[in-house]
Design a protein around this nucleic acid. Structure first.
Lengths: 225, 225
DNA sequence: CCGTTTCGTTAGAGGCTATCACTAAGGTTA
DNA sequence: TAACCTTAGTGATAGCCTCTAACGAAACGG
């Protein structure tokens, strides 16, 4: 019997095949989008027949869910590492942008159009709130003196968020910081998703500069008001 | 030969079948997303066999493109009407939100995850810039006295936009207004797309209030700085 | 009334997901 | 070593899908 931490050859082989399937899947997704992902085509690329892959993934949905999980995980790791390297909220925003540009379809797999019936498993939503946690940390750290929060007028939305802060877990950030975290997320996502979708194509301006400008606005007002 | 403006019975019938196909298509899209749209299933629902529909649409892509066109058209009409009824930029934002909530999948068809290879035909991008035109009008009208633009510091991004303003056509809006139009679009889209994608699910707060808060911020700063 | 155009059908190629029964190979145990 | 069990991969099959081609039938227009 295999002790904890050891792996049998069979388990190693299994893990390797699963990894190769996912690798091919990412290639397919990058070139044709997630809806065009085909287990059959992946199998043929690997020199197998279609049904063989059902030994490794219960169905197409399970493979996609696994890819979504990996994508979330890679973003969370990137953000955590940026934070560990001393990045502030702006640094996290840059990490997000680089992660998004590196593989647009991966970004869309996480933040793009959902299929109506689908509901992500709990461990994936847990990773999502882990990412939100890093953002809250970064924004909260900007406010160590408490001066920005103190100066900040209490808006009706802040009061509302004070009553609905379950999503922040037990994070100590005050409502004004929760508010800022939401604006960070939604504003950056607004730019990134439109840019990656090609909606800025033919408009001529440089999305990176616009991103920087929004970021400056997002950070600047913590000190200027 | 039918004179201009008249229609033969055949043309009427054809238009009616095409309309019914699109109607069924919207139902399918609303419940299962665009990727699950099936010409075959639509035909069966209409009491026909699958291949019959190829008399009306060259292929699946053409049907989807038609739906995208209709969706854009309906948004443009809504925004134009709101503007004609005297709505300012905030009013347009409310029109956008209602249009989005009325049919989330329709919103995603227009602003959601694109298929990597796909390129929209020119008339569709023309509708997109028509919508942008209404937004520029509304934002420009806020600034009739020119005081906000005058007070507004010329940012590097504004200078950049002054050099890349092709997308605004021959609209007289100054660079600062172009900048504001971009922030309007991207910030509102950021919230709407995440909300419709269900990313706020389980977070507890009311997205409508957050939308209002962003809108207040977007409008408020035109007078406060 | 008759030719022409258009519509809808069936048949079929080729793709997909997914299940099933079966073989062949690998590991385990007596 | 031999018997056994587990697992990987196969072909066959069902049931979807898109899309093409050929054929009958209906409707239109002169």
């Amino acid at each position: 019997m295999a002790g904890a931490g050891t792996t049998t050859p069979r388990e190693r082989y299994r893990a390797q095949v699963r990894a190769e399937v996912k690798e091919r899947a990412w290639e397919q997704i990058a070139t044709a989008g997630a809806s065009a992902l085909s287990l059959n085509a992946i199998a043929k690329h690997m020199g197998m027949t279609g049904p063989a892959l059902y030994r490794y993934f219960a169905n197409r949905d399970e493979l996609i869910t696994e890819l979504v999980r990996d994508a979330y995980r890679s973003l969370a790791d990137g953000v955590r590492e940026a934070r560990a390297a001393g990045a502030d909220a702006t640094g996290l925003a840059h990490a997000l942008r680089e992660w998004a540009l590196a593989d647009p379809q991966r970004y869309f797999l996480v933040y793009g159009t959902p299929v109506p019936g689908y509901h992500a498993p709990d461990d994936i939503t847990a990773i999502a709130s882990e990412i939100m946690g890093y953002l809250l940390d970064a924004l909260n750290a900007l406010d160590v003196g408490g001066d920005w929060v103190a100066d900040c007028p209490t808006t009706p939305l802040d009061a509302h968020l004070a009553d609905h802060r379950d999503w922040a877990g037990d994070h100590p950030a005050p409502p004004a910081v929760l508010h800022r975290a939401l604006t960070f997320w939604t504003r950056l996502h607004g730019i990134l998703s439109l840019e990656l979708a090609g909606q800025f194509h033919g408009m001529g301006f440089d999305p990176a500069r616009f991103y920087e400008a929004e970021l400056a606005d997002l950070s600047g007002r913590s000190t200027s008001t």
